[in-house]
């Protein structure tokens, strides 16, 4: 499933499985990714399930008055987090296309996700 030009490896894989506005999971998961990156860890981010909706364009703070996660996502590059993956099956379930998401993530099929998990010594799931 992997291609030779972009290995599915890294130091720390952070898996984000929750939508942005209904709970604090996504925000708290992203916080861990940012801190790890600031510590010099090579972080890969994988958005799975409802987590893929975090990457839908043009999100604002929303009715709950919380900060939202889009501004945090826009900071990922500044932290050198450049490996962004989304679960292909979740994209089709939500009727999304990787091309229309922010930050140009790469869609991974189930086999590639398994490989990514295997190739990271550390995996944290939020």
């Amino acid at each position: 499933m992997s291609d030779e030009h972009e290995p599915l490896a890294g130091d720390l894989l952070v898996i984000l499985r929750h939508a942005p506005h209904g709970s604090s999971w996504l925000r708290e998961g992203l916080d861990v990714a940012l801190v790890a990156a600031a510590f010099g860890t090579e972080v890969s981010l994988l958005f799975m399930g409802e987590g893929v909706t975090a990457l839908v364009e043009d999100q604002t703070a929303g009715a709950l008055g919380q900060k939202g996660t889009a501004p945090t996502l826009e900071m990922l590059e500044m932290y050198d987090i450049e490996t962004l993956w989304v679960e292909a099956e979740a994209l089709s379930r939500f009727g999304l296309d990787a091309d229309e998401l922010m930050l140009a993530p790469r869609a991974l099929e189930a086999g590639a996700i398994a490989e990514a998990v295997r190739k990271h010594p550390r995996v944290l799931t939020f």
């Binding site: 720390l12 916080d31 861990v32 801190v35 790890a36 510590f39 860890t41 550390r122 944290l124 799931t125």
Partner: peptide, 20 residues
């Protein structure tokens, strides 16, 4: 303490096990 401690633990321990 800060999340940095979590990152540090994950680096210096053989296993970090999550319960959620």
């Amino acid at each position: 303490t800060g999340v940095g401690q979590l990152v540090d633990l994950s680096q210096r321990c053989d296993r970090l096990v999550t319960f959620g």
